[in-house]
């Protein structure tokens, strides 16, 4: 359905914006390494089923792209461009996010198996893993516009999944309460950012009017 496709495209675009930003500016300034490392953990734990379940070529290619690109970004940040910029302000206590997600996955899962717990863990971790990035954005104050476009596209992807889940509930009688709960939490975390982003875009637009 349309929401799902739009969500996936938004996710893809967010990563392309990020890669483009880093390669063009040759700096990873303003990007939270912690958030990017958490994304590697999210994708690897979520997409373990690549090895066991085949859904579609599209699905497999997207999963491989998200795992590979997240590892690549971390490599860019830690190896290629790390000498040019040192992030002192990226100090969000990530252990609470990982610990909290782990606890949530132990409390909420469909089956008490290794892969099901990891799948649930990846949902909760994805919901909160933007927090170090938002924290960094707040600390550095003035953000580059491109960084905010990246965060916006990234947040939009999960927000678009919500109407997709409504649609699937009515058309397929399918309701995944775990995904929906974590997705709602994720979109709530982004909501403040969305508001500020919306205000700024509108404001700039207003200023540029002849």
């Amino acid at each position: 359905n349309l929401f799902r496709i739009a969500g996936d495209i938004s996710h893809l675009v967010s990563i392309l914006i990020l890669l483009q930003t880093i390669e063009k500016g040759k700096t990873t300034s303003g990007i939270s390494l912690k958030t990017q490392i958490l994304y590697v953990v999210v994708f690897v734990t979520r997409y373990l089923d690549l090895l066991t379940t085949y859904v579609s070529l599209y699905n497999s290619l997207m999963k491989i792209f998200f795992i590979a690109s997240s590892v690549y970004v971390v490599w860019l940040m830690t190896s290629k461009y790390n000498k040019k910029f040192k992030e002192d302000q990226d100090v969000f206590p990530v252990k609470y996010l990982v610990g909290g997600s782990f606890v949530m996955s132990l409390l909420f899962h469909y089956k008490f198996t290794f892969s099901e717990i990891l799948w649930s863990f990846s949902l909760w971790l994805e919901a909160v893993c933007i927090l170090p990035q938002l924290f960094l954005l707040q600390k550095t104050g003035e953000a580059k516009a491109i960084t905010t476009h990246y965060i916006f596209a990234l947040g939009l992807y999960r927000a678009l999944y919500i109407p997709n889940w409504f649609y699937r509930y009515y058309s397929e009688n399918r309701l995944d309460l775990l995904s929906v709960s974590a997705g709602l939490l994720q979109t709530t975390i982004y909501s403040d950012f969305f508001y500020v982003y919306y205000q700024k875009v509108l404001k700039n637009w207003g200023f540029n009017l002849p």
Partner: peptide, 10 residues
């Protein structure tokens, strides 16, 4: 209805 999860998603 079919299965509950949406694991065919990303």
């Amino acid at each position: 209805g079919g299965g509950k999860t949406v694991k065919d998603e990303l």
